[in-house]
Amino acid sequence: MTTMSPTPTRPYDLGFTRWVYQNIDGGDRMALCMQCGVCSGSCPLSTTMDNGPRKTFMMIRAGMKDAVLKSDTLWNCVSCYNCVVRCPRHVPVAYILHELATLAVREGYAPARTSETNKFVKGFTWSFETFGRTDERIISLFYYFQDGFVAGIKKLLAFKSIAFAFVKVGRLPLGLPHRIKNRGELKKMLAAAAAIEARHTAGRK
């Protein structure tokens, strides 16, 4: 990360707002938000979010950088895209939330590091980097045991019945996880992606 986004010193200082408008993919369209509430109303996870997307956008305008980047709204999006297709101003709401989540990680906001979603994502990443596949069992185990062995066992037991149900209907294979062929190619692709992202980030003001 070459530069951090600016931190406003007073309400509605537009330093952060403009940075977001210019540096976040779809941020320019966020400017068109008219606070109608369709996004938050369409969101299946809205009740689990502290602010929801609409208020998040207003908070960005109000320069509430810390509150925005600490918000669980960024992490609870499940990418259903209801908000995107319904927004009367064509604001790519879900994409913007993901971008903001990435920003929060980069800038080291605590909820970003400790959020369940982030932990899950780590498992997800580890799985495909290691096996070239996203194996649900590996992801789950990685996710469950991140906070220690005891916590892992507890979680495992909590999901026991669901797991057995999956096995019963054949949705959870019992064989060993297997890797893809040509993992080297995958590594090259991942490296290229990382390079692109680094370039992209460096290009930002």
Partner: peptide, 26 residues
């Protein structure tokens, strides 16, 4: 609030869904 959708209620009637933007109530 601009309602997000109208769902079909258990009695078959309309249920208006969305976010009240003043109270943030869903």
């Amino acid at each position: 609030s601009k309602p997000a959708e109208i769902k079909i209620g258990p009695d078959g009637g309309p249920v208006v869904c969305g976010e009240n933007t003043i109270t943030r109530e869903i």
